[in-house]
Simulated scan of single mutants.
Amino acid sequence: MNFVRITYTGRKLYRDRATGHVWQPQEERLVSEVIAKPLLKFVEFKRTADLKPAEAQEPGQEQGAAQAIQQTSELSEQEIAALEQQALDDKAKEVDDQREAMLITVLGMNKTALAEYAQKYDHTFDTKAKVDDMRITVNGLIHQFGVR
């Protein structure tokens, strides 16, 4: 996954609905290219490299050290972004595991248990409904609303 450093040059807070990020004026962040692409369509967002004037390259240890520190900080931010993405992936996997476990449990439920579980979703069954139809409905509720 490639990352891009972008800066928000707007004057007010900006809340990105897609990602949930809140941008402060003149805030600079390292984001993935997938997130950066739609943001860069706005005038207020610029690539940070485009904002900073090109500095003359002077030979010396100070500049080399500054570049090394900057590269180290970028790597650490990339690692942080990767860890955040890993945490999101782990949470999604946990939700999927819970859903799968509940779907397996639903296979073993009888008519009464299915009716009680469906009440968690504010759904009631007709007393004459077939068990297989009830299982299909409960599976649909689990897929639509998650495990309750």
Rank of each mutant, 00 (worst) to 15 (best):
D50K: 01
L83I: 09
Q67W: 04
I80H: 14
F125R: 09
E28M: 02
E33T: 07
E100P: 04
F42D: 05
Q85I: 02
L114D: 12
M102K: 10
M102L: 12
V95D: 14
A65L: 11
L83H: 12
M109L: 14
G108Q: 12
E27F: 03
K111N: 12
D89A: 14
V31Q: 02
K93G: 09
L83R: 09
L107S: 14
A82T: 13
D97H: 09
A66W: 00
E74K: 10
Q67M: 07
P38S: 02
E27R: 05
A54Y: 00
M102F: 05
A113G: 12
M109I: 06
V43W: 06
L39S: 04
L107G: 13
K91F: 12
T72I: 01
D97S: 10
A101M: 06
P53M: 00
K37S: 11
K128A: 12
T105G: 12
R29S: 05
L30F: 01
K111I: 04
A54T: 00
K111L: 06
I104N: 15
E62R: 09
E62K: 07
I104Y: 06
N110F: 05
K91C: 08
G64I: 01
T72M: 03
K128S: 15
I104G: 15
L83M: 12
Q61E: 12
D133N: 14
D97V: 07
T48E: 09
P25F: 01
A66Q: 01
Q86R: 08
Q71A: 15
L114R: 09
A101H: 10
S73N: 07
R135T: 07
Y117S: 04
L114A: 07
L30D: 00
G108E: 13
Q78Y: 02
Q86G: 04
D96R: 10
V31E: 02
L75D: 02
Y121N: 11
Y117I: 03
K128N: 14
A36K: 03
L75G: 05
E94F: 08
E33Y: 03
A92I: 03
T48Q: 11
L30S: 01
T105W: 07
D133Y: 06
E79S: 08
P53A: 00
L39Y: 03
T127I: 06
I80A: 15
E74Y: 08
D122C: 08
D96T: 08
K130Q: 15
D97M: 08
L114F: 08
